[in-house]
């Protein structure tokens, strides 16, 4: 099948070919699901919220103007719906949504155990899951969705420099953990 662009698919959906929306779902479902899972820390909730996000996107397609990329527009829906879900479930959002001025520190009881296994990938993946919502979102969008800092700032409605601060802090914290748990000898 011809590799249609997002805009071509959306134009087709707008013309009444509603079943084409399935192409958009297939294209974004796993990436958006990863973002929501890292935000909500719960796969079942993330899937429910993602269904709502796709429905919202479908119902608002008429409002989508091609000034921004579809992915940015859609991720803004996903990110905001994720935040709404977090606040509605009355989690301790204040502690999770640390502002960028707050100190970022990742703590884990299993850090030493994982570190002893000397499995870099497992170790880092497990630490990413423990990042606060905003930091995890930035990491997810930057690495998994290959979004630029500018696009992420549009999604999160914050400045580009804030996004960079969150990205650098996340990397630095992970780097410090890596050095702390004696991986450093293997790095050189």
């Amino acid at each position: 099948m011809k590799n249609l662009t997002d805009i071509e698919i959306i134009e087709s959906v707008k013309k009444g070919n509603h079943s084409d929306f399935a192409l958009i779902i297939d294209r974004y479902k796993n990436k958006a699901f990863s973002l929501l899972t890292r935000m909500l820390k719960n796969e079942m909730e993330a899937e429910e919220v993602l269904q709502d996000c796709f429905l919202k996107a479908f119902n608002s397609l008429a409002n989508f103007r091609q000034e921004a990329k579809f992915s940015t527009w859609f991720y803004r829906i996903v990110y905001n719906t994720g935040l709404t879900k977090l606040s509605s479930t009355k989690r301790k959002i204040e502690s999770e949504m640390a502002s960028i001025d707050d100190h970022l520190e990742i703590k884990s009881e299993h850090d030493f155990r994982i570190a002893e296994q000397k499995d870099f990938s497992k170790f880092i993946q497990s630490q990413v899951e423990k990042l606060p919502v905003k930091y995890a979102s930035v990491i997810n969008m930057f690495y998994l969705d290959n979004m630029t800092c500018e696009e992420i700032s549009e999604v999160m409605e914050t400045s580009v420099s804030n996004v960079k601060v969150m990205l650098y802090r996340s990397r630095n914290e992970l780097k410090n953990l890596l050095l702390k748990f004696k991986y450093s000898e293997e790095l050189l």
Binding site: F120, N140, L174
Partner: peptide, 11 residues
């Protein structure tokens, strides 16, 4: 390592 971040799969 982050570049090969795990992608979660929906049902």
């Amino acid at each position: 390592e982050l570049a090969s971040l795990k992608m979660y799969q929906v049902s």
